[in-house]
């Protein structure tokens, strides 16, 4: 490990950065070219946040062990009543409990 930057690595990182920026501005470029938004597209766009975030949650739940499943269920129960960091703390505490005291 050196503390310098190799040219190849820097180019690869910058290419990844450009690819990422294209995704970040792409939706804006597409949508501003349309004069009106059809109601079905409006409805579809409104569903985007829940749809995307679910894909980061569901496979983690189904592929995870019992420790992960219990942690996520704990966060779900707490998250229905309290927003913010509390569900995160509940999930983390449940995972620590499973791993260090229950031995999952």
């Amino acid at each position: 490990m050196t503390d310098l930057i190799s040219v190849d690595m820097a180019l690869l990182i910058l290419a990844a950065a450009v690819a990422t920026f294209l995704t970040r501005i792409g939706g804006y470029v597409l949508i501003t070219r349309m004069t009106t938004i059809p109601p079905r597209m409006e409805q579809a766009l409104n569903a985007v946040p829940a749809a995307v975030l679910t894909t980061l949650v569901a496979p983690a739940f189904f592929n995870g062990g019992w420790d992960v499943k219990i942690a996520m269920l704990a966060a779900l129960v707490v998250g229905i009543r309290y927003p913010g960091l509390l569900p995160l703390g509940a999930g983390w505490a449940a995972a620590m409990l499973c791993r260090h005291l229950l031995g999952f």
Binding site: G64, V68, I80, W92
Partner: peptide, 15 residues
């Protein structure tokens, strides 16, 4: 577990 739990919290917020 923090990452999936964090995203789960965001999903719950849209219910």
């Amino acid at each position: 577990v923090l990452l999936p739990v964090y995203f789960l919290g965001l999903v719950i917020g849209f219910r």
